[in-house]
Write a protein that binds this DNA or RNA. Structure first.
Lengths: 345, 345
DNA sequence: TCGTTTGGCTGAAACATTTCAACCAGTAGA
DNA sequence: TCTACTGGTTGAAATGTTTCAGCCAAACGA
């Protein structure tokens, strides 16, 4: 039985075929591909012609086998669906593509198991580095992985005692900016729609808000009413309105992110509360649509593109494994974006 | 000169080391990893212990070298920044992770060169398949690539004479739904804020709108005023308002996507036009925040998650290279989401 | 006691590259 | 004429797996 009926299963071309076609050794073909300056002009042309004629495509796996670590880095996020990550992604891609590196995208869905599984596969692939927003608070397995030679950078999370490189945005400062803005507008009763404090970002933003109040010479306990939401969704943002103190109610709402602010805005509109006249509202993150809501939403901008770019940059140096590079933490400064939801236009 | 000062550069472990440690041959180690049922219980335990003790991680490149095509598929989109793609991505990831496949994400930025470059790299990596939204109208290079054995599925684009597999959403039907909805509400002068007709989606949606008008027994030329925008951004959406006919102006606005609708809504608010009382507005895509605008935006939903999932599914069968599988085009039906921007609540 | 079978394991070939020592034919210098 | 280079090329080793034919010892049947 011949295999005529399976023409698709013919062996893929290798450098041997090219070498034979061009009447030259495989070593030379390799040189044409990787160090053309070592090859005579005539030979160069001939070999290149053969490559083109045969439609030869070199095998990345074989290259990598010989040459050590590969040319694709892992990006392991908690949830691809989260707009925050998708807005960080372009920055990463941008920097990586400059270095001819491929981006392998993995989503842990906040499951430590799935995260571990992906890390294992990435290590098997001998990626030079991994950019990760860990699912859980424990990062010892990441430190271990780094010790084994895989570059590792934490994304949007502090570097935990500087055991790892990290990029993050200063959330305390962000909270401070928001607080100062609202206080500056004369608000003296501020509700903070926050997530649970075990989430680092939430705790930090609260801390910043508190500082701003103190800096204004006021008592945080009197000024701030914190409402803790079970989830940071629009629905919860709207529901939280019902839990605000009835008398001596707040005149301003600071939401821990824009998604929550969205729900709050909607809820206020339904109740006929006018924003910002009766209630000022602000969010955090400055996601793409914040500016486009009506009223447009005052928010604290996180430089997401730069965040991604810097993370990729850091990963590159970490993966290169310079001896004098130990660990580094890049902290970005957030920026206040004042819009119609706090300041009447 | 010894290399004591470079402990990090020690050779990576291979199966040889494991074999030596366990006092067994490499073949057996391989069997432990891939066909444990062939190995005696005792040996199995011993080898596994060695693997753990040494911290051995098998090399994916070496495996692939021997075994043919790899375990990561390419996803090549026009622009990672586009919310449409980021909302399709989870569906793809979801399906791929079930098959233990890695997702390599590439963004062509609408450049044919960059697209070609990425395709080349992906082919070098011997990916079993590629999911792509091509940058240009010509897809002959993709057909060629498929002929060489790389699975290929077009995303959000018809399969061009069925030369390739494709998944898409029925845009004509979507336009029809939108038109019927507005006509049903009694609108007889509809402005269509559209993109250029060379973009397939734009032409199709217009076609659908026209059909709806005809179906209602009306003259499309009288009912529809089409305004062509140079770019599908909120800014242009707002600017387009200035180009609407002054007298006998439209009573409804159909925007070719939600981003444009956003700009239109904002512009109308600035002019004091009340939505939907003075002007009904609807968008297309039903992106995440459409529901959360005020007023919430009526839109035509594209099943993005399913789109991604189906695309991945199709890619899997295409990559498997079943002989009896030729080409297939999956077309999803859009769904009308009626909200406050067209129907007073 | 002598084949025969069988479960386990081994050793080597194959996969497609890169890299490097060695080689070869000229050319230049002594 | 001999030696020393030099630019170009070669051939083979090395990389870490998988797979497969073959081998060995133990069990089994007669």
């Amino acid at each position: 039985m011949t295999d005529i009926h399976k023409p698709a299963e013919r062996r893929r071309l290798s450098m041997v075929d090219v070498a034979a076609h061009a009447g030259v050794s495989v070593g030379t073909v390799s040189n044409v591909l990787n160090r053309p300056e070592l090859v005579a002009e005539r030979t160069l042309r001939r070999v290149r012609a053969s490559i083109k004629a045969l439609g030869f495509v070199p095998s990345a796996p074989a290259r990598q086998l010989r040459g050590g670590s590969g040319r694709s880095v892992g990006v392991l996020v908690r949830d691809i669906g989260n707009p925050f990550f998708t807005e960080v992604l372009p920055g990463i891609e941008n920097r990586l593509s400059q270095e001819q590196l491929l981006l392998v995208l993995c989503s842990s869905g906040d499951s430590a198991e799935k995260e571990a599984h992906y890390l294992q596969i990435l290590e098997q692939h001998r990626v030079p580095g991994i950019l990760i927003t860990p699912a859980g608070p424990d990062i010892s397995h990441l430190v271990e992985l780094r010790r084994r030679g895989v570059g590792m950078v934490l994304l949007d999370r502090p570097g935990a005692d500087a055991q790892l490189c990290a990029v993050a945005v200063d959330n305390v400062r962000g909270g401070e900016l928001a607080g100062a803005h609202l206080l500056g507008l004369g608000h003296r009763r501020i509700a903070f729609l926050n997530g649970p404090h075990i989430v680092r970002q939430c705790a930090d933003r609260r801390e910043g808000l508190t500082r701003a109040v103190r800096a204004a010479g006021l008592d945080p306990d009197e000024v701030i009413t914190e409402v803790t939401l079970p989830a940071l969704t629009p629905r919860e943002g709207e529901a939280a309105l019902g839990r605000l103190p009835a008398r001596k109610g707040p005149t301003a709402l600071f939401c821990v992110n824009d998604t929550v602010a969205l729900g709050a805005l909607r809820g206020l509109e339904r109740r006929g509360v006018r924003v910002p006249h009766d209630m000022a509202v602000m969010g955090y993150d400055d996601v793409e649509f914040a500016e486009l809501l009506s009223p447009s939403l005052t928010s604290v901008r996180q430089p997401k593109h730069q965040l991604g770019q810097a993370a990729a940059e850091l990963l590159l140096t970490d993966a290169r494994g310079d001896v004098n590079h130990w660990h580094q933490e890049i902290v970005f400064q957030p920026e206040l974006m004042v819009r119609a939801s706090t300041v009447p236009q």
